[in-house]
């Protein structure tokens, strides 16, 4: 991966329903401040909403770290969603469009991947899940 520098960050706990809204609003605010246009702000906010909801829904609690990030050539936003919940048995399966263990649409993980420039997921059953997404300002 690239060498990164973090300019600023914020941590948002996800403990209840309302925190999903607080988290996505914070992400929009960060995206706006970093300089993303309205469409990118909306992409970022929507991806954040999906992933924060997954924490609330499947792990019960966790936290979201929003960071303004830069490497040698680009500046952007990095958001990490982490929990110590049940984790995923089969990450590959969960990334498939339409896969849901509950009665969702199975849109959250694959959808937020499509909205962002980079998407990384790590998960271990019984240990928890961590999803990291990036969006870079257009060059």
């Amino acid at each position: 991966m690239h060498e990164e520098r973090y300019i600023n960050s914020e941590i948002i706990p996800i403990l209840e329903e309302r925190d999903v809204v607080i988290c996505r609003q914070a992400c929009r605010e960060w995206a706006r401040r970093i300089g993303f246009n309205l469409v990118d702000q909306t992409r970022i906010t929507t991806a954040a909403s999906e992933l924060a909801r997954n924490i609330h829904e499947y792990a019960g609690a966790g936290e979201v770290i929003i960071q303004e990030v830069e490497d040698e050539t680009r500046r952007g936003i990095k958001i990490t969603f982490q929990d110590q919940g049940p984790g995923l048995d089969d990450v590959e399966e969960a990334m498939k469009e339409g896969y849901t263990s509950h009665k969702g649409m199975g849109m959250g993980l694959p959808g937020s991947k499509k909205l962002m420039d980079e998407f990384y997921i790590q998960s271990e059953p019984e240990k928890g899940t961590s999803v990291t997404i990036y969006k870079w300002l257009p060059i």
């Binding site: 469409v39 469009e97 959808g111 499509k114």
Partner: peptide, 9 residues
Amino acid sequence: AITLVELGL
């Protein structure tokens, strides 16, 4: 609207 269709809805 753009985000919604990119998401797949």
